[in-house]
Computed example of a mutant assay.
Amino acid sequence: MEIVQIFGFALVTLVFAVTLRQQKPEMALIVSLVAGAVIFLLMLRKIGAVVNVFNDLAARANVNLVYLGVVLKIVGIAYIADFGAQICRDAGEGALGAKIEFAAKILILVLAVPVVLAVLDTLMRIIE
């Protein structure tokens, strides 16, 4: 039940940050950012395990690993952008968070173009 531990850590950090915010708001923000970074780092191992499973599945299905890499990059961009946007919102900079999300959408679109072209090329070959 790792989620219970993470929730407990977040709850303790939340109480500490809310209490600290009354006296030193900048320190409360730093505490919140550090807690978010700790939770993110704790999840990196889990993300690595998922990537390994996808690599194994791609190898078994004889899927080009380039496409898997693109999909994993897209997922990574989405998670990192969401995390960054939430940090910006926590700091009271919602507009900056929105700009991060916008940039992520553009980056995802750019990464998706070769995959879409490959799918269309495959469909055209099947139709002919």
Score class of each variant (00 low, 15 high):
Ala49Pro: 00
Ile47Cys: 02
Gln22Glu: 01
Met1Trp: 08
Thr13Pro: 02
Arg89Ser: 05
Ser32Glu: 03
Gln23Cys: 00
Pro114Tyr: 08
Asp56Arg: 10
Ala59His: 15
Ala118Phe: 04
Lys24Gly: 00
Val63Gln: 12
Lys99Tyr: 06
Ile87Cys: 04
Leu20Val: 04
Ala35Ser: 11
Ile100Lys: 15
Val53Leu: 14
Met124Tyr: 12
Gly76Ile: 12
Leu96Thr: 07
Asn55Thr: 05
Ala98Leu: 10
Val51His: 01
Arg89Trp: 05
Val15Thr: 10
Ala104Lys: 13
Ile77Trp: 00
Leu72Glu: 11
Ala81Phe: 10
Val75Pro: 00
Arg60Thr: 06
Arg60Asn: 14
Val4Met: 07
Arg60Cys: 04
Ile6Gly: 03
Lys73Arg: 05
Thr122Lys: 15
Pro114Gln: 10
Val53Pro: 02
Leu68Ser: 02
Met27Gln: 12
Met27Arg: 13
Leu107Phe: 14
Leu107Gln: 03
Asp82Glu: 09
Leu44Pro: 06
Lys46Leu: 10
Val4Asp: 00
Ala59Glu: 15
Cys88Phe: 15
Leu109Ser: 02
Phe54Leu: 12
Lys24Gln: 04
Ser32Leu: 04
Asp82His: 14
Gly94His: 13
Ala103Pro: 00
Glu101Gln: 14
Asn62Lys: 15
Val71Trp: 10
Phe9Met: 07
Gly76Glu: 09
Arg21Asn: 02
Phe40Val: 09
Leu123Ala: 13
Lys105Thr: 07
Leu14Gln: 10
Gly69Cys: 03
Arg125Tyr: 07
Val34Trp: 13
Gly97Leu: 07
Cys88Glu: 12
Glu128Gln: 15
Val119Lys: 12
Val116Asn: 13
Val15Asn: 04
Asp121Ser: 09
Leu117Glu: 15
Ala28Cys: 04
Val115Ala: 08
Val70Ile: 14
Ser32Asn: 06
Ile6Leu: 13
Val15Leu: 14
Ile106Tyr: 04
Ala95Asn: 05
Gly8Asn: 12
Phe102Glu: 02
Leu120Ala: 09
Ala104Arg: 12
Leu33Phe: 13
Gly69His: 03
Ala98Cys: 05
Val50Lys: 06
Glu128Asn: 15
Gln23Lys: 11
Phe102Tyr: 10
Glu128Asp: 13
